[in-house]
Design a protein around this nucleic acid. Structure first.
Lengths: 131, 131
DNA sequence: ACACCGGTCAACCCCGTGGTTGAAAGCGCT
DNA sequence: AGCGCTTTCAACCACGGGGTTGACCGGTGT
């Protein structure tokens, strides 16, 4: 079950088919069968994927009558986005700081790529902090 | 195997333990055993998680001698970030547009929340487009 | 009423994954 | 060499996830 929302969201997007669905949904709502037709898999399989996306909160659907269209829901994306942003930015800052240090030490020549240079050690006795 | 990079990245972050590791790594590099100690699971299990993160490109480690520290790698985050951003923004635009339409139709009263109102249909015959 | 159509549920199969245990490497000591 | 530390590999187990097939519900049309 993995229980927590973030896990579900990430897990949901970990599948190419599901990502493709999201991509198509971002261009407009669609019904289950409409979503299904491009793929070679069964309608039921698509439905399952849909359920996963729904459980992840990435997608919502009116419980009303017959042609229940599927609609993208932005909030779950925000969840992941902020999480990623939170940690990624930290790393990039460390990168830049290191860049700066290196630049200061020699004449600068900022390599855009990530070839591993030498390593700097830095212990972190941090608390888990999670989320 | 799920093969593609994005899938691996998302799948990697779909696990709370792994996310926690990333969170801690964003505060500074750490060795496998350092990473392992907070958790009740085996060192080997942690190592496996590490492998997943590494395969996902979220983490790198110098192949040098013994205490091989683990280091966060920003690029994979960028991958996910841009993907999410690409689609999320689309949705939000649609939201706003719909908001605007509604506002135009009546005297505006922009509900901040997402209670489902009525729905507008809009077919999309778009190509998969993927990635 | 009947059938049709879209959507949904349930049982089942296969394999990838999170976790375990056990043993083997690598490398730093003295 | 031998000890001890960290890191890694391999075999194994239980569970959940992606996919299938088959049947069932809910409206709409005629």
């Amino acid at each position: 079950m993995t229980t927590d929302a973030l896990s579900r969201a990430f897990a949901a997007l970990a599948d190419p088919t599901r990502r493709d669905m999201v991509a198509r949904l971002s261009e407009g709502d669609a019904t289950v069968s409409q979503l299904a037709e491009p793929y070679r898999m069964t309608l039921q399989a698509v439905y399952k994927h849909l359920r996963v996306l729904e459980d992840a909160g990435l997608v919502s659907r009116p419980k009303g009558p017959q042609p229940r269209p599927v609609r993208l829901e932005a909030q779950a994306f925000d969840l992941m986005d902020t999480w990623i942003e939170r940690h990624r930015s930290r790393v990039e800052q460390r990168y830049r700081r290191l860049d700066a240090v290196l630049a200061e030490m020699r004449g600068d020549e900022h390599g855009e790529d990530h070839g591993d240079g030498d390593r700097g050690r830095s212990e972190a006795a941090g608390h888990p902090d999670e989320s």
